[in-house]
């Protein structure tokens, strides 16, 4: 794909010799919503941190807008990050600032806009997520779904060209989930941005994603459009998409034979 805005090439990453990723290749084209899916602990969130330059790859590289992230100095990384917006798993709103100030935060830090314009922009962003009326509340007064939407408003405050979502559906009720799904798609199209979603919620993601990567055992196990994957014959994808409890990903953690353990007295 020619107009890739983020490209992951032969990426390996690990802590203390144990590799979490073993040669991953992914492409995120401009204007698309791409999901990275996989089981818990498969290193999906770590991928986002690698794209954001918070971690350095052991091998391979991540390119954002044609620039290799881990070769940038601090200034360069900060310059790249200004093009990115990230929604953290639990919102990560600043608890000592009001909703309004949270959304205004990136503007105050990176622009010299007059107060009246900041006010207009913040209310515009809050309106986009449907929470203009909540601008005076403190983050502790919000429900989980509302906090997530405020965080989304903050993530798009500077009109980023890349929006990253870390588990946007975790711990939300079905209504909030539907709202977030809708927002991800509509904001992406309205801003002309590229969205990268890390999640394990199959049904919701398949409704609106353009392309999906499955990560398992540190490699890309499968990729394709949601329709391709739904009909996939690969056993792992089949198990994941249909939520079967046993399959290539076993129910049991690796252990000696149960019967033998009982006889010996389990240790």
């Amino acid at each position: 794909m020619a107009n890739a805005i983020v490209e992951i090439q032969d990426l390996s990453f690990g802590y203390k010799g144990r590799l979490l990723h073993k040669g991953i290749n992914m492409t995120f084209p401009k204007g698309k919503v791409v999901a990275i899916m996989g089981g818990s602990g498969s290193g999906k969130t770590t991928l986002l941190r690698l794209i954001g330059g918070q971690l350095k790859p052991t091998k391979g590289q991540v390119q954002v807008g044609g620039e290799v992230v881990h070769q940038q100095d601090r200034e360069g990384i900060y310059r790249l990050r200004r093009k990115m917006g990230m929604l953290f798993q639990h919102g990560a709103l600043f608890t000592d600032l009001s909703v309004f100030e949270n959304v205004a935060f990136p503007m105050r830090e990176h622009t010299n806009l007059p107060e009246s314009m900041i006010r207009d922009l913040v209310l515009l962003k809050l309106n986009a997520v449907g929470l203009r009326g909540a601008h005076a509340l403190m983050p502790t007064e919000l429900s989980g779904g509302m906090a997530r939407r405020v965080a989304l408003a903050r993530a798009i405050a500077l009109d980023p060209s890349i929006i990253m979502y870390d588990e946007p559906f975790a711990g939300l009720d079905p209504i909030s989930m539907a709202v977030i799904c809708d927002l991800i798609r509509s904001l992406n199209d309205a801003l002309g941005a590229t969205s990268i979603i890390v999640t394990h919620d199959v049904e919701e993601t398949f409704q609106f994603a353009d392309y999906v990567y499955f990560v398992a055992d540190g490699v890309v196990a499968a990729e394709g459009t949601p329709d391709d994957l739904r009909n996939s014959e690969l056993p792992f994808v089949h198990q994941f998409v249909h939520g079967e409890k046993d399959g290539p990903v076993p129910f049991h953690y690796a252990a000696p034979e149960y019967h033998a353990s009982l006889l010996r007295g389990a240790r």
């Binding site: 918070q54 310059r79 990050r81 990230m86 953290f88 639990h90 990560a92 600043f94 990136p106 965080a151």
Partner: peptide
């Protein structure tokens, strides 16, 4: 993750 969020906002 507030500190991480700040980092990501450059």
């Amino acid at each position: 993750e507030q500190l991480s969020a700040m980092e990501m906002m450059a």
